[in-house]
């Protein structure tokens, strides 16, 4: 190879390596934060309804501090290269969306929207070609939330909360029918969507158990 050409290629390469290292560092931090958040949220399964707000309040500041991370990553990425690097943090950001959506449901019983998720993570419209929240990652976050809720529903009943199953059942059915509208490729999202079916079934069985025993009065869905 021509030595001059070689030098040029090397320069290109070095630049990319620099970007990658900067992102790697931030992702490490992101991971740490996410791990703390998920750790705290693990306690919902043994928290009675009355103490739930306090628990959720304790996570919020950590979640909001993720904005520093997204800002740093966005700063490290060259224009138009969002899609080149995004796989590096997709696990972390999905977990962050999961946490935000779970908190939203447990607080207000409502579904976190994509723009709201972006906002919580401090993602700014003008970063769009360097950092954004893709639909796929948002949906992964939602699925993780449903996975967690299907476990939560069981533990809620154990703690004597017989109303929760019905509420969660309706909430998850909404999300589920949303997902059935999507034409997913044969990828990880599709496979995880298939798992939703099991969650839904499990939740329905809990609703069955409590309604069979007349612990709650069930009204038809819709």
């Amino acid at each position: 190879m021509d030595p001059l050409d070689l030098e040029k290629l090397n320069a290109l390469l070095e630049h990319d390596v620099g970007v990658s290292e900067k992102i790697k560092e931030q992702v490490k931090e992101f991971d740490k934060k996410v791990r703390i958040i998920v750790g705290i949220l693990g306690k919902i399964h043994s928290t009675p309804t009355t103490s739930m707000p306090a628990l959720l309040d304790s996570v919020s500041p950590v979640l909001l501090s993720c904005r520093d991370i997204t800002t740093s990553i966005a700063g490290a990425i060259p224009p138009d290269q969002f899609w080149r690097w995004k796989d590096m943090w997709s696990n972390s950001i999905r977990a962050a969306v999961f946490a935000a959506a779970l908190i939203e449901y447990l607080r207000d019983g409502s579904l976190l929207s994509l723009p709201r998720a972006s906002e919580i993570l401090g993602i700014q419209e003008e970063w769009k070609d360097r950092f954004s929240l893709p639909v796929e990652d948002y949906l992964h976050g939602l699925i993780s939330m449903v996975n967690e809720l299907s476990r939560y529903v069981v533990n809620a009943v154990t703690l004597g909360n017989y109303e929760e199953p019905m509420r969660i059942s309706n909430f998850v059915k909404d999300i589920f029918s949303g997902f059935t509208m999507l034409n997913l490729k044969n990828d990880s999202l599709r496979r995880r969507f298939d798992s939703l079916k099991y969650d839904l079934k499990k939740i329905e069985e809990v609703v069955y158990d409590v309604s069979l025993r007349k612990l709650v009065v069930v009204k038809p869905f819709q």
């Binding site: 409502s110 909404d174 999507l182």
Partner: peptide, 17 residues
């Protein structure tokens, strides 16, 4: 989000996807 608004949002997702 209400049920209908959930469906509306997913409608948008469908188009994107």
């Amino acid at each position: 989000m209400t049920r209908d608004s959930v469906l509306a949002v997913f409608e948008q997702f469908r188009e994107d996807i």
